[in-house]
């Protein structure tokens, strides 16, 4: 049974007492009394299986309305993860944005048993493509488009590499889209399932895309690094891949890691092994329809 098959009322009731969620290696308990969160999670996590209550959760996540007289006209919500509040309060209409950012924040600041890199990860026939790029590089857009083109989504934000065996863990959570990329993805695939658009966040308008059902079902499967790609969107540019020498790739990826320094030698060795196994490229693209087949070929060639 999946969360989407629950009725709104059942779902709300579960969310009020703490909804158990499993995302890849983590168990979360998600609790909220907000309608916007219930609506958003019910839609975006529809393909997640209903799991029973766990004795132990890695993260206890809570999004709650703040009751205060002065907030009567403009209600605010509070995001908490294990009691910590990583952000200031969000206006209630954008609470769902705080939820996804907050879970990412929790995972990236606590999971020092893994090498955590700020990157999107997608997989096809066992080869994972790891997309890196600053905000505005077109990384999330490309990630969403690939997930809609038959690639398995592991994560849109966090590459989690295990130092023990070099494998990449999947999270298969909703993809965060911002500003223009929302429209681009709606145009890319008619009928794509997206949550409400939330204007006015610190990063502009945000909307979440539902992860493909198949990716969610396979979230327990890890993948091997196949390709590191530094994404560089340029309007009108033809799609092309340019190889990056391994030492430079290592340093650029390390700068995108949240805990490379914390892991010390282990971080170095884990990343060096990954870079050894997977070549790195700079992808310049102007059209998603050109970039995706190109990445498919490059990954298959490995």
């Amino acid at each position: 049974m999946t969360l989407g098959e629950l009725t709104q009322d059942e779902f709300r009731a579960r969310l009020r007492d703490g909804l158990p969620l499993r995302t890849g290696p983590f168990h979360l308990s998600l609790r909220s009394n907000l309608n916007v969160i219930a609506e958003s999670v019910h839609l975006l996590y529809a393909d997640f299986p209903v799991i029973e209550r766990q004795p132990f959760y890695d993260f206890h996540v809570r999004v709650s309305a703040v009751r205060r007289v002065d907030l009567w006209l403009r209600p605010l919500s509070r995001f908490q993860i294990d009691g910590y509040e990583p952000f200031r309060m969000f206006p209630v209409p954008t609470a769902a944005a705080s939820l996804e950012w907050g879970i990412n924040r929790g995972i990236s600041t606590r999971s020092h048993h893994l090498l955590v890199i700020h990157a999107a990860v997608l997989e096809k026939s066992g080869r994972a493509v790891i997309l890196l790029g600053e905000s505005g590089s077109g990384k999330s857009t490309l990630c969403a488009a690939m997930a809609l083109s038959g690639w398995r989504l592991l994560s849109d934000e966090l590459a989690l590499i295990s130092p023990a065996d070099g494998s990449l863990a999947a999270l298969a959570r909703p993809i965060i889209l911002k500003n223009e990329s929302i429209r681009i993805i709606r145009d890319f695939a008619a009928g794509v399932c997206m949550g409400r658009e939330m204007p006015g966040t610190s990063k502009g308008t945000v909307a979440h895309m539902r992860p493909p059902a198949d990716s969610v079902a396979r979230a327990h499967e890890s993948a091997r690094p196949g390709l590191f790609v530094f994404v560089n969107y340029q309007a009108g540019a033809p799609a092309q891949l340019e190889p990056v020498p391994k030492p430079q790739a290592h340093m650029r990826i390390a700068r995108n890691a949240f805990n490379y320094g914390i892991l010390g030698r282990v971080g170095f060795e884990t990343l060096a092994d990954a870079v050894d196994a997977a070549p790195a490229y700079v992808l310049t693209y102007g059209q998603l329809t050109e970039a995706i087949p190109l990445l498919g070929q490059a990954a298959a060639a490995q």
Binding site: P25, D58, R110, S111, H112, H113, L114, N259, G261, I262, L263, G264, V266
Partner: peptide
């Protein structure tokens, strides 16, 4: 995992 993560953090 929590033990390992924290041990790594403490070492750092």
């Amino acid at each position: 995992p929590h033990l390992q993560a924290t041990a790594n953090l403490a070492a750092a």
